[in-house]
């Protein structure tokens, strides 16, 4: 009885309570995240076959550095860089235009542009796969036929594959990123623009000297999530090519390669080595990016 009361008192004390609240994260972090990261490291030095594991040193990494891996890596990095380059300026311009005083029915346009973000990658991928189908009557082939072009086998050639992937990304994310910039724009004081107008600044000057610099925190955030999304891209390519194999691996991403090795070919050691490399890349990019941009998370912590 005495013991129970003490226990109750302990659990209910103001000192213990925060730890109880923290507990769900602590458990899930240790079990699912920390242990998994550790396990990935360990397995990347092993040959794993069923229950038997065997330490093989750096062999997985030696096997890993092959042309297909570098192709997958190159594809992921290229996708990430181009999507970052498109998905910041384009939605920022749209948000600025939408936010302008002359604009009417802002909310309607905003909502309509947001709709693609509601579709799942699978649904979006299915539609794009069929829109860019190779049949002469597929939507895009019909469209280019209007301009006198011959039908194209979109998903077999490098430039058009990238085009489809980027269009898919633009389609799904423009509305969301625009919304980020719109909420960033609300933070910019109106009188800045007014005094600039009095000084005779043009709309373009105002955009580059007021809007762009003051939207920097938003841009950094969008950049962070775009890097994350770009490096982790898998489903888009998996759906477009209806599986993990694309002709000449034009659509293979690093996550796709991890999936191929770890799950399709059951080479868990090699798959883990890919995981380790991806982890290092993501962390390095993030550290550089956050250092360079002053650290968005650090800034938020001050609040």
């Amino acid at each position: 009885m005495e013991k129970q009361n003490l226990f109750k008192k302990f659990i209910y004390s103001q000192k213990t309570a925060p730890y109880v609240f923290l507990l769900p994260f602590a458990i899930s972090f240790l079990v699912f995240f920390a242990y998994s990261i550790f396990d990935t490291f360990v397995m990347s030095f092993q040959r794993v076959a069923g229950g038997n594991t065997e330490f093989i040193g750096l062999k997985n990494y030696q096997v890993l550095f092959n042309p297909i891996f570098f192709k997958a890596l190159k594809n992921s990095i290229f996708y990430m860089i181009v999507t970052c380059c498109i998905m910041i300026p384009f939605p920022m311009l749209l948000a600025t235009a939408l936010n302008s005083k002359s604009m009417r029915c802002k909310n309607m346009y905003r909502s309509l542009l947001f709709i693609p973000a509601l579709t799942s990658v699978v649904v979006a991928g299915v539609v794009f796969r069929l829109m860019f189908g190779e049949l002469p009557n597929s939507f895009m082939n019909q469209l280019i036929a209007r301009f006198g072009a011959e039908p194209i086998i979109w998903l077999r050639r490098v430039p058009t594959v990238w085009l489809v992937l980027f269009l898919l990304c633009i389609w799904r994310w423009t509305g969301v990123n625009m919304m980020y910039f719109l909420s960033g724009l609300q933070q910019i004081p109106e009188d800045l623009y007014e005094s600039a107008s009095i000084d005779g600044a043009s709309a373009i000057q105002k955009f580059f000297h007021i809007t762009v610099p003051l939207l920097k925190p938003t841009s950094v955030y969008v950049l962070t999530i775009s890097i994350y999304g770009g490096m982790a891209m898998f489903t888009e390519s998996y759906i477009l090519f209806n599986g993990n194999s694309s002709p000449n691996n034009i659509g293979l991403t690093i996550v796709g390669y991890l999936y191929k090795m770890g799950f399709e070919q059951n080479n868990i050691g090699l798959g883990s080595a890919i995981g380790v490399v991806l982890l290092c890349i993501v962390l390095i990019i993030n550290v550089i990016q956050l250092k360079f941009n002053g650290g968005i998370f650090a800034k938020r912590k001050e609040k």
Binding site: F25, F29, F33, D39, Y259, G262, F263, S272, V282, L283
Partner: peptide, 22 residues
């Protein structure tokens, strides 16, 4: 809190293999 930020930065795809084993 640093751990929370760390998990936010790392794509889950990195750990799907050990997660699946678990």
């Amino acid at each position: 809190f640093t751990c929370v930020l760390l998990v936010m930065m790392v794509p889950t795809e990195v750990i799907i293999l050990p997660l699946y084993r678990m």
